[in-house]
Design a protein around this nucleic acid. Structure first.
Length: 1014
RNA sequence: GCUCAAGUGGCGGAAUUGGUAGACGCGCUGGAUUCAAAAUCCAGUUUCUUCGGAAGUGUGGGUUCGAUUCCCACCUUGAGUACCA
């Protein structure tokens, strides 16, 4: 019987689904293991071969853990809210829910045919009301919480109210808005309930505030910092501007330190942790307050507070710089400087964020005319403004120490501000000295002679003594904007009474997305939900009612924004534990049993988005006692991207290139229909170098001849040809099989490539045009997308799985090339032949040979090590070696061949199941004929490695001379060092190598190597 | 600029504690089988070579009996981040 993969795979996939083979139980005597994939956004384009890479890896691990006796949770779902479905709705009017449902169906079909061992009974979809009910619920919990720095955790807002009414806000150590007004317990009690609500909002973990947001006009929505790359939107590359808007925000800054500390206890890659550390951006230093010297006697005293990481350089301060947007600028600027300052502010305001980022070398600024007083020397310090100081970081003001900071140095030089040197024995005439550890402080009163560490400590102490500063830690991490002006997202469970947000009671959730006529913003600029006509909250009936009924007494308007994409993905891993629970977000029993994710696999592009926000929510839920762990994923692996290999042709002719020589251009303008040519890569390369090869020369001669025949007087005028050939991509569908040869006829018939329809292809002597292949990201527009459906049809799911793993290390970026898949495919055919031939099953009860046992056990050892190290590529090689060896040994022994299948089963589950079942029944069995009680290979135990089969009695020693291996010698392993040395020296090849020299030294490492020096 | 990865045949890659560099596969070359093709099987395939050998893991140096592996400097590529005080 032949290896009929299409038949086998379809039947086993059906069998697994029907028998719920991979369903995980929420209680079990077995140890638990949770393997999680980052769930996909179901896009309309479906899967390409790059997408399943991580899923295959996690599936191998999940199957391996089942063989090891674990109760494995391996779920899958869909991150199904998002922009593309909404944009499709805007274009076509089709409801995003329908688009999403269709896309999910496609994804499911594609995933199913790869043979994943997902427990689909736990599927989640973030856009399902039964799911987002709990996303809304978490939002309410965040609203009802504040962060207590004393207990270092989130607490219920009621505890804050209690503190307020007993002692005001004086003693509260909370993470909250800036500029909170102090009040006493009496004040609090006297406040109106609205005023109280306003104050509480400044403390809540999710809060409504007018903040400066990143507004993307093209997308009509705000974006979070992680959704902006180089000043433009991640999606679409549209410009982003700063704008003040009232938005929901998440007080993630409350968790900055815990998010940073938590990284130390999780096994994530260093680069990913590093990204998160950078994003959190902790810097330790001091805040220092400078008194501004009054210009006139009746001026209000003001202060400028700054954050610095170098309080030790306080005596080096020779000026201060404020961000142009700093609120004090107008107040302190002197009348003489007002014109200059205003002009500068105007000039900076005109520059976009992007310009400012791109141009960091130009030094600009203006003097305010004001002076601050040095806290210790009491000397006056000029106050400048400059756009190198960012309003959004620290306090938006810096104390400038030109001798210790490059930017301050450049600024001081540019504006001729004095530079004070406070470093002992350091020359600062050329540049600033920012290496804090290599000198001691001088010229600094009480800091003289101290090193960086001691001086910092002392400076902070002295500042505290005079009440003008304290030690402070600053974080770059900003609170995350949580409102989006979109339709296809979770609605907020929020209505407004007199402009104050009110939470809908959790018992009335979910608040379902309303129907709208149009998915665009309203004419008055409200978000799409502003189009909904039934979008008001009736506080008596506790239901969503028509907007007409709004009376602002019992019926109130609902929130028009929706939640961002990361809302639903920040907790989904917990929902899988108890996916259908209607009363809780997951039951306590399920959460206690599964605890956390043991292995999480997904892309590194989520490093500062999803992976940070989800850690934040997990910590919050942990504080609330809802989840048992404050980090949800013990280990995380980033799979690398699979790149496509695009195929290029090189065109020459109108519409494909410029027309040179000049005379030919003129002729073309005169209305001659020119010829197009597709030339080989070598001709193109030569053209780039300005040389002409025979082919190009021939083409030009042909063109000239044609013009001449039409009566034009043309001639070729030069050899300059660079840039006249145009490379263009062709679709992989137009290549012959998996080769690089172009199927010219099919290309010409494709309407996508109509521009090349009439071209003449310059082929080789066999009539082939060879395309040039280059590695790029897979994308539809590059025509290099490979669909897994095609691979599965041609080679089978097992081949696809093996090949994706065989390509290279999991974490690495690597190119896909379908041609290579024949290697793993013929391995599977060879494997099949080991078990079956034309007469049926070959497996016997024969006693295995020593060699076969050795092959098996070294394979067990290697494969087990590889899986545990996530080195899946090398285990595929190991399987190939094992199959090659066993074939050579003509092994038919069940004792060898049965355990081998268990080893292979995580990688190639279909063929392993088929052969395993066949061995059980002594013939190639059809899945349909299996008895009811049959337990498949997934219940089989992973084979035990037995080292005794690998014991050797001799070793083929490499004999090296000065470290270079020259020949080998077979010697017994129990031979003593001396005996080995004697035997090697006695060998005639040794004497040959030495050529008469006497060895200075002989290194013998028993069991490893012999090295002769001399 | 800073941070983090990574540089090995024509290609993807292997060598897990320093110990026979190039496993395994693709591609290529030759052969067998076939009327022919596909498929399959066998042999070869780092480079140079006077066929004895010699050189060789981005470059230059170092440590070591011995370095793809450890250390220093540099070059290149990729990713992230950026007037962060």
């Amino acid at each position: 019987m032949k290896y009929n993969f299409n038949d086998i795979e379809a039947k086993w996939q059906k069998y697994w689904a029907e028998n719920q083979t991979f369903k995980a139980e929420n209680n079990s005597n077995k140890p638990k293991y949770y393997v999680l994939d980052m769930f996909p956004y179901p896009s309309g384009a479906g899967l390409h071969v790059g997408h399943p890479l991580g899923y295959i890896a996690s599936d191998i691990y999940a199957r391996y853990k089942r063989h090891q006796g674990f109760n494995v949770l391996h779920p899958q779902g869909y991150d199904s809210f998002g922009l593309p479905a909404e944009q499709y709705a805007i274009q076509t009017g089709q409801h995003p829910a329908i688009t999403t449902k269709d896309n999910i169906a496609t994804y499911r079909r594609q995933l199913d045919q790869i043979g994943f061992s997902f427990d689909w009974s736990r599927e989640v979809r973030t856009s399902d009301p039964n799911y987002y009910k709990w996303t809304q619920w978490i939002f309410i919990q965040l609203f009802n919480s504040w962060y207590n720095n004393d207990s270092d955790k989130a607490e219920d807002i009621s505890t804050l109210e209690t503190i307020f009414s007993s002692g005001g806000n004086d003693k509260v150590n909370a993470v909250c808005d800036e500029n909170i007004q102090p009040f006493s317990a009496e004040d609090w009690k006297s406040f109106s309930s609205e005023k109280q609500q306003q104050i509480l909002l400044q403390y809540r973990l999710t809060y409504l505030a007018e903040t400066e947001v990143n507004w993307c006009p093209a997308l009509g929505t705000v974006l979070a910092n992680d959704e902006i790359i180089n000043g433009v939107s991640e999606r679409g590359g549209h410009p982003v501007i700063r704008k003040k808007m009232t938005q929901w925000s998440m007080r993630i800054s409350a968790y900055a330190e815990r998010l940073l500390q938590g990284l130390d206890k999780i096994d994530w890659t260093d680069s990913l942790k590093e990204s998160q550390r950078n994003w959190i951006g902790k810097s330790v230093g001091a805040s220092v307050t400078f008194n501004v010297l009054p210009i006139t006697n009746n001026q209000q005293p003001t202060t400028i507070s700054v954050f610095t990481t170098r309080p030790d350089t306080i005596f080096g301060v020779s000026f201060m710089t404020l961000a142009p947007e700093h609120e004090l600028v107008q107040q302190i600027t002197t009348p003489e400087q007002k014109a200059a300052v205003d002009a500068y502010i105007l000039a900076t305001a005109k520059r976009s964020e992007r310009d400012r980022m791109a141009d960091v070398k130009t030094i600009s600024g203006a003097f305010t005319g004001a002076y601050a007083e040095h806290p210790f020397t009491k000397e006056p310090i000029p106050v400048w403004i400059g756009d190198y100081v960012l309003a959004g970081y620290g306090t938006g003001a810096v104390m400038s120490v030109p001798c210790g900071d490059e930017r301050d140095y450049a600024f001081a030089n540019h504006f001729n501000i004095p530079i004070i040197n406070i470093f002992e024995g350091v020359d600062i005439s050329e540049s600033a000295f920012s290496d804090k550890d290599k000198t001691v402080i001088g010229n600094s009163d009480f800091l003289n002679g101290l090193n960086y560490k001691k001086a910092t400590k002392r400076a902070i102490y002295e500042l505290e003594q005079i009440g003008q500063g304290e030690g402070k830690t600053n974080y770059r991490l900003r609170d995350a904007v949580f409102s989006r002006q979109r339709y296809w997202g979770e609605p907020f469970p929020v209505y407004y009474v007199k402009g104050m947000p009110q939470m809908i009671d959790a018992s009335h959730l979910p608040i379902k997305l309303p129907e709208v006529e149009k998915y665009l913003p309203t004419e008055t600029g409200e978000p799409p939900l502003g189009n909904a006509t039934v979008w008001a909250w009736d506080t008596n009936k506790n239901e969503v009612v028509s907007n007409d009924l709004i009376d602002n007494e019992t019926i109130h308007p609902l929130e028009l924004n929706t939640m961002p994409g990361w809302a639903g993905s920040s907790w989904y891993f917990n929902r899988y534990m108890d996916a259908h629970n209607e009363n809780e977000f997951a039951s306590k029993e399920a959460l206690d049993y599964w605890q956390d994710v043991d292995l999480y696999i997904g892309g590194s592009e989520h490093a500062t988005g999803h992976l940070l926000y989800s850690r934040f929510w997990q910590k919050f839920l942990f504080d609330k006692g809802v989840v048992p762990k404050d980090e949800y994923a013990k280990k995380l692996i980033n799979q690398g991207m699979i790149l496509g290999t695009s195929a290029f042709c090189y065109g020459f002719g109108p519409g494909l290139s410029y027309e040179k020589p000049t005379d030919v251009v003129e002729a073309a303008k005169a209305g001659i229909k020119n010829k197009k040519y597709v030339i080989p890569k070598e001709s193109y390369d030569k053209g780039l170098k300005g040389e002409l090869d025979n082919i190009t020369r021939k083409i030009i001669d042909e063109i000239i001849a044609e013009y001449k025949s039409k009566g034009f007087n043309v001639k070729y005028v030069g050899d300059e040809f660079s840039g006249t050939f145009t490379p263009f991509r062709v679709s992989l569908n137009h290549l012959k099989g998996t080769s690089d040869f172009l199927d010219i006829e099919s290309l010409k018939q494709d309407s996508l490539f109509s521009f090349i329809k009439d071209a003449i292809f310059i082929t080789d002597e066999n009539g082939n045009y060879t395309t040039y292949r280059d590695v790029e990201k897979m994308s539809k527009s590059k025509y290099n997308v490979v669909n897994p459906d095609d691979i599965v049809e041609d080679y089978g799911a097992d081949s696809l799985r093996l090949y994706e793993m065989f390509l290279g290390p999991l974490e690495q970026y690597k190119p896909w090339n379908t041609a290579g898949i024949t290697g793993v495919h013929s391995f599977l055919k060879k494997l099949w032949k080991l078990y079956a031939d034309d007469n049926g099953l070959k497996v016997t009860d024969a006693t295995p040979t020593k060699d076969a046992l050795k092959t098996l056990h070294k394979t067990i050892k290697k494969v087990q090590e590889d899986i545990e190290n996530f080195s899946f590529n090398t285990s595929v090689s190991t399987f190939m070696i094992a199959a090659n060896e066993l074939t050579a040994q003509k092994c038919t022994s069940k004792e060898i061949l049965e355990p081998l299948l268990v080893l292979i089963s995580p990688y190639a589950p279909h063929i392993a199941e088929q052969l395993f079942a066949s061995i059980q029944f002594g013939k190639i069995i059809d899945v349909d004929d299996l008895p009811q009680n049959y337990e498949g290979i997934s219940k089989a135990s992973f084979p035990e490695f037995d080292a005794s089969h690998l014991v050797e009695s001799s070793k083929n020693y490499p004999i090296s001379f000065n470290g270079k291996m020259r020949f080998t010698m077979e010697l017994p392993l129990d031979m003593s060092k001396d005996a080995i040395e004697k035997a090697v020296l006695a060998n005639e090849k040794t004497q040959e190598q030495l050529a008469g020299r006497t060895p200075k030294k002989v290194i013998v490492v028993p069991g490893k190597i012999v090295n002769i020096v001399g």
